[in-house]
């Protein structure tokens, strides 16, 4: 959350202050199917944006385009002043600046929890082993499971695994965190602990884009809510505006279905 309390922006696609992520007229096709059409979005520094929408609406595809897990076909994506292009150097640089948390955690099952976290700092940032391990333990303390450091991911509960995954992303000291349905694969009783970790992160001033179905989280933490359907951004607004007086019929329909 930003220091300046968010308000309804004149142009709701504009973020707070200077933007760290810009999507301009982004299109994405899978074969002949258009997954994203004409996406325009600016995300401000330290802003928390929650993306919601029915499944298949392109939410995940959008954030996966930001760190080039998917390649966009038209338009411009700029992350922290670096434009995403075919240039491998730019892609690597953007990936170092952005962390991503997946629905299925995607922890490395052959490495211990601590090794999962220290792998990228050691290999990409060339941090010395000792320093990386201290940093890794700090992060594990932040997500409240330092005692699990020597275990393997398979020995942890789903909620603990997802918290390790968050710590692993944070280990690269990213400027932006992308969350792709981080609680959708979890048992209900474990969702809370992961959301709490994400709230702490938001309070700490991290820029976050969160694709989720957790409306409570959106209401409580988001600076803005983005509603997507059929590959398009239908509506953008503050949580208050979005949940209480949405403009679009499509949004009203969706909200009536889930609330």
């Amino acid at each position: 959350m930003s220091d300046t309390s968010p308000s309804v922006f004149a142009d709701a696609t504009e973020g707070v202050g200077d933007s760290i992520i810009e999507l301009d007229h982004v299109d994405k096709f899978f074969g002949s199917f258009q997954a994203l059409s004409d996406i325009n979005l600016r995300i401000g520094r330290q802003e928390v944006v929650v993306v919601i929408g029915p499944s298949g609406s392109g939410k995940s595809t959008m954030i996966r385009c930001i760190n080039r897990l998917e390649e966009h076909d038209n338009g411009r994506i700029v992350v922290d002043g670096i434009e995403l292009s075919a240039d491998v150097k730019n892609i690597q640089e953007i990936r170092r600046e952005t962390g991503m948390v997946f629905q299925q955690f995607n922890l490395f099952p052959h490495l211990t929890v601590l090794d999962n976290i220290t792998l990228a700092p050691k290999q990409v940032r060339r941090m010395p082993k000792k320093e990386a391990e201290e940093w890794g333990m700090d992060l594990l303390t932040q997500v409240k499971i330092p005692e699990q450091a020597k275990k393997y991911p398979g020995q942890l509960s789903g909620g603990q695994q997802q918290r390790v995954a968050i710590a692993r992303s944070l280990a690269m000291k990213p400027k932006v965190m992308l969350f792709d349905e981080p609680t959708s694969a979890l048992d209900p009783e474990m969702i809370g602990e992961v959301l709490d970790t994400m709230k702490d992160l938001a309070k700490g001033g991290m820029t976050m884009i969160v694709v989720t179905h957790e409306m409570g989280f959106a209401r409580e933490v988001a600076d803005r809510v983005v509603f997507m359907a059929d590959g398009q951004i239908v509506e953008v607004g503050t949580p208050q505006h979005f949940f209480e007086s949405p403009d679009e019929d499509r949004t009203k329909l969706f909200l009536s279905q889930i609330l």
Binding site: L69, R95, T98, G99, M100, L119, A120
Partner: peptide, 15 residues
């Protein structure tokens, strides 16, 4: 090996 493993590596900036 699930494709998510490679994606996690990519997202962390590994070559």
């Amino acid at each position: 090996v699930p494709v998510g493993q490679e994606e996690a590596g990519k997202a962390l900036g590994l070559t």
